[in-house]
Structure formats: structure tokens, C-alpha cells
Amino acid sequence: MNALPPTAATVAHDTPAYNFAYLDEQTKRMIRRAILKGIAIPGYQVPFASREMPMPYGWGTGGVQVTAAVLGPDDVLKVIDQGADDTTNAVAIRGFFRKTAGVRTTTHTAEATVIQTRHRIPEAPLAEHQILVYQVPIPEPLRFLEPRETETRTMHALEEYGLMHVKLYEDIARHGHIATTYAYPVKVDGRYIMDPSPTPKFDNPKMHRSKALQLFGAGREKRIYAIPPHTDVVSLDFEDHPFKVQTFAQPCALCAAEGVYLDEVLLDDKGGRMFVCSDTDNCEERRAAGHRGALAGDDISRKDRS
């Protein structure tokens, strides 16, 4: 009984010694067990005793806990938010693991063994040895149709997904389109309907039969789920309204990539805008390989917008 809670004095003067990757071993075991159940039941949301993390709920605590539970000293970690390595939240999470686990970090998709992401899947196909960890705000795909966990749990148990199809079809009746553009529901291995996290539906096809293991962590909602490699992931649709991804009218203004997801950047208040790659690593690698977009010409390369 000698380790009573520290007083302000000891907290102020001792540097707290945290475990590798912050979480204690008991917590890691609990999360690891949930991950294994998730893998065994693809698309099913496994409840887990999510811990309070030193970052706010809704800012990636689920992804961080999953990453902390799988990460080892030999891993190379990449963290992206909105497809970019340099967004503030990605920078903060990468810094967290550099500090608490001392792991090597990278911005290169191909170099990474563990990639934690918010809202995007990298453009380059992932490989067998890679693990993609998604930060998930609301893991329940039926939540906006039925707010009660007690109800949605029964719907999953009975595979009663009619409500979801009705919702999508109502969209078509009202708008002529399925009005869901991100967090577009998928069916995993023909059984569970799953929320792919708020990735644009553009990324949905990348989940299908991916070679990488995909793990999903929702900290605030206390759920973990998974898609094993080579697993069927089908976006919900209708025969007369097949699933289609977004297309962009122009290529990336920096690297000229087509068939990738682009961010719209406003250049002025007169309607001037440009479209650039959301996946910053993919864009940089293409430019390093000599690809040039309309606004990346050498002649204007020294002209700074500021």
C-alpha cells in the first residue's frame, strides 16, 4: 500500500514514466483481445473498455488505442489526417507515438508498417505486411436511422438491414442520387453492414479485398472492428442505381494525377480555385518522379503566393 496517489508535489517534480506506447499492459491485452474478436467476426463492432487518453474523445482516441496495442519497436508508423501527413491532428498523434514509443515514423506510405488514418485511405495499394488503423467517430452505420444501441444491436443480430436500404432509396426518390458521400455503408463478407469511418465513398473500393489488415477504433463509443485481408467489402447500392465513386473534372494541379481524390483550395474571393491531391505523399512522390501539374510548372516555381 505504499503507492498511494501522488500529491501535487510529486507530480510537479517527477517526470511520469509511461509504459511503451503509453497504455499499460493490462489495457493492451484487453484491446488485443477485442482486435482478435473483430478479425474473427469481420465488420462486427466489438465492445471494449476504451480508456481515457491524454487527448480528447473524437480526436482519434480509438485509433490511438488500437495503434498502441499493435505497435512494436520495429514498426514504422505513418499518421495521416485528410490524406495529409502534415495536418495538425496527424502531427500531434505522430508526435505522441514518437514520444511514448520511440518508433520510427515516416510519411512514405510504402515504408510504413502501421498507418493510422482519419478520413482517407492512401491512394497507393497497401501491401500484405501493412496494417491500416482507422479513427472512427461513430462506428454504428445504423446510428442515424436509429439512435438506440439496444435497437441497432438487435438489427445487426437479426441481419435486419431493410431500414438502411429504405434510407438510401429515399435519397434517390428525393434527390435523384444516393445522398451519402462519405461514411458510405458497406457489407463485409456478406454479413455485417459496417461504417467505413467518414472516408469519402471514393475510398470504399480500396477496402475490398485489400491485402492489408484494416482495424477500426472508436474510443468514445468504445468499439473496435476489423476487416481481415482479402475480404469482400461491398458498398450498398441498387440495380438501377449502382454504386459510383466521385470523379474530378481536372487532374491534380501539382502532380497531374488523375483518378485520385482531390482537395479544393480557394485561391481568392472571385471564384479562383484549384484542385490538389488529398494524399500528400502520393503527390510528392509523383512530383519527385517528374510529373507536373498545371500550377507546378518550373517557370512559376519561385513565385510564392504570399
Partner: peptide
């Protein structure tokens, strides 16, 4: 507070889709 405040994180990928 975490979830309400997370709305200030970048969401431009999803907004672009919308």
C-alpha cells in the same frame, strides 16, 4: 466535449464530397 469540439478538426475531405 471531445466530440462536439472535434468538429473543429479538418473535415475538408468529406466536405469536398458533399
Amino acid at each position: 466535449t471531445g466530440f462536439v469540439e472535434h468538429l473543429k478538426l479538418p473535415h475538408y475531405v468529406d466536405f469536398q464530397a458533399e
